[in-house]
């Protein structure tokens, strides 16, 4: 099997090598990929949308239809993870560990023993527990608000600098994942429950599609943001810029919530009980 695979891969590489001789040279401004529509995007993008970052302009305006369904694919992937892994029944076996908060003494409660649920003095810790580390705990907690501010900056400044809904959303999701890694999954799911991530992911996509359908209702094409000029009381060019911002916010919400959702399902194998 391995030898067969190796020969197949070598053949594949030979075909690729052969075809590389008929590709246009690297960095050629007159290559077929760099002509036609992309020249128009570069020349007229700034004039038509008032967005200096052409990638954002093409992403959310000229190719908005494409991006909408990419976001749908991500939502579908999040839902697929949920259906593949989520188990609502609790695992009956194994003992549970509780830590006395003031002294750090660990209690092992065998199966059937009374557990100090909702106690102010004891907190539950994971079965594969790691020693409590004050530095990691507090440092991660201090970093999270600044990282979230940066994520919002990336989303809202995406018109003028690299960034946008996808990047900012992933950074925002990563902050919650950082909390879940540095503390434990239970306290993080109390702050950001599964229900919230499911709601935010659909709401983000709804904002995207809703912006598109609002244009349709105002008598223009789907995702043609210049129709929003009447609603927002600006000229059509600025309306396209604002429409891109709305769409990016929707994408950011959806992507961040889905990243968190997939992490919850993977790290706890669907039980939401004990995490990484």
């Amino acid at each position: 099997m391995k030898r067969f695979a190796f020969i197949g891969v070598l053949l594949f590489g030979a075909v690729l090598l052969y075809s590389s001789f008929s590709f246009p040279p690297l960095g050629d401004p007159h290559a077929p990929a760099n002509r036609h529509v992309s020249d128009d995007y570069i020349r007229d993008g700034m004039k038509e949308t008032a967005v200096p970052n052409l990638v954002t302009a093409v992403l959310a305006d000229y190719r908005g239809y494409d991006t909408m369904f990419e976001a749908t694919v991500i939502l579908a992937a999040g839902i697929a993870c949920f259906f593949l892994l989520r188990r609502y029944r609790r695992k009956p076996a194994q003992h549970r560990l509780y830590r006395h908060i003031d002294t750090g003494v660990i209690l092992i409660i065998e199966q059937g023993g009374k557990e100090p649920v909702d106690s102010k003095e004891f907190e539950r810790i994971d079965y594969h527990w790691v020693p409590f580390d004050l530095v990691v705990n507090k440092a991660a907690g201090l970093m999270v608000p600044f990282l979230q501010l940066f994520a919002l900056y990336v989303i809202f400044h995406g018109h003028h600098s690299p960034g946008g809904g996808f990047q900012g959303g992933v950074i925002f999701g990563a902050t919650v994942i950082l909390l879940a890694i540095s503390r434990d999954l239970r306290s993080t799911t109390r702050l950001f429950p599964e229900r919230t991530s499911a709601f935010l992911s659909s709401a983000g996509l709804f904002i995207y599609a809703g912006t598109g359908f609002a244009c349709l209702l105002l008598g223009s094409n789907l995702l043609d943001y210049s129709a929003l000029a009447r609603l927002l009381a600006v000229d059509p060019v600025m309306a396209r810029s604002h429409g891109i911002l709305l769409v990016e916010i929707g994408v950011g919400m959806a992507v961040s919530a889905i990243m968190i959702w997939i992490y919850y399902n993977l790290a706890s194998a669907g039980r939401y009980d004990e995490g990484l």
Partner: peptide, 26 residues
């Protein structure tokens, strides 16, 4: 491709590594 590099830095080097570590842990 600064936008693509930014996405890869946050997605590829950040979140997907966490997913891999979570899957290996499970």
């Amino acid at each position: 491709a600064v936008d693509v590099a930014f996405t890869e830095a946050s997605v590829g080097a950040g979140v997907s590594t966490v997913f891999f570590v979570a899957a290996v842990f499970r």
